[in-house]
Write a protein that binds this DNA or RNA. Structure first.
Length: 187
DNA sequence: GCGTCGATGGCA
DNA sequence: GCCATCGACGCG
């Protein structure tokens, strides 16, 4: 089956629906004529300013600016002094929904450990230089996978214990059959 | 196989 | 001071 590039229309779903919908899709980074490719197996949804776990809950700042923009763009930020995190803006413009890509399975015989958001971004060579780029372009983009039928599982998000009543929200999604999912498979 | 902890820098 | 993390280390 021919895989088509995901469109703006697809990215305009709510953060929750996009996070679910991205499981099984293929992430591609075209770099120096080589395509790095991985099958996404784990995501988390962040639901805008009211979501206390989302960076957008602190309002619109230089860092969070792209999250408030149109869907289908990369939001990449730096954390813990050494990791980049790759997110995809979702929903309607101004809604500031986003999906964190947490894990993937490497394709094409690529041997890389993509089990965790820090490791994934590093292996895919995604950095803050990619912040704000349009994911319907030819550099960094996603492909559909028509025959891929992941077994969807849900838990609370990782590392958001500070987020008060949002900390236990069931917004982490993963393919229950994938060995590449990062640590916890239940609450 | 667990829990704990240090690295390391941008951000509000 | 706090982090949407990771890997090294100590335990027994």
């Amino acid at each position: 089956m021919l895989s088509r590039k995901l469109t703006m229309r697809f990215y305009r779903q709510s953060g929750t629906d996009l996070a679910k919908g991205l499981i099984g899709k293929v992430l591609v980074h075209r770099i120096e004529g080589i395509d790095l490719r991985g099958r996404i197996v784990e995501t988390e949804a962040y639901l805008g300013p009211e979501d206390l776990a989302s960076h957008s809950s602190r309002g619109r700042t230089k860092r969070t600016e792209v999250m408030f923009g149109p869907a289908g763009h990369a939001y990449v930020y730096f954390i813990y002094g050494m990791y980049e995190m790759f997110n995809i803006v979702a929903g309607r413009t101004g809604q500031a929904h986003a999906v964190l890509i947490r894990a993937a399975e490497p394709l094409d015989g690529w041997t890389a450990d993509l089990s965790g958001p820090g490791k994934l971004a590093r292996a895919f060579r995604i950095t803050r230089a990619d912040n704000g780029i349009d994911l319907t372009g030819d550099k960094l983009f996603l492909l559909g996978a028509p025959n891929d039928r992941p077994e969807l599982a849900v838990t609370k998000r990782v590392g958001v214990e500070y987020a008060r009543h949002w900390k236990d929200a069931p917004l982490r999604f993963f393919d229950a059959r994938s060995p590449a999912v990062s640590k916890p498979r239940s609450l």
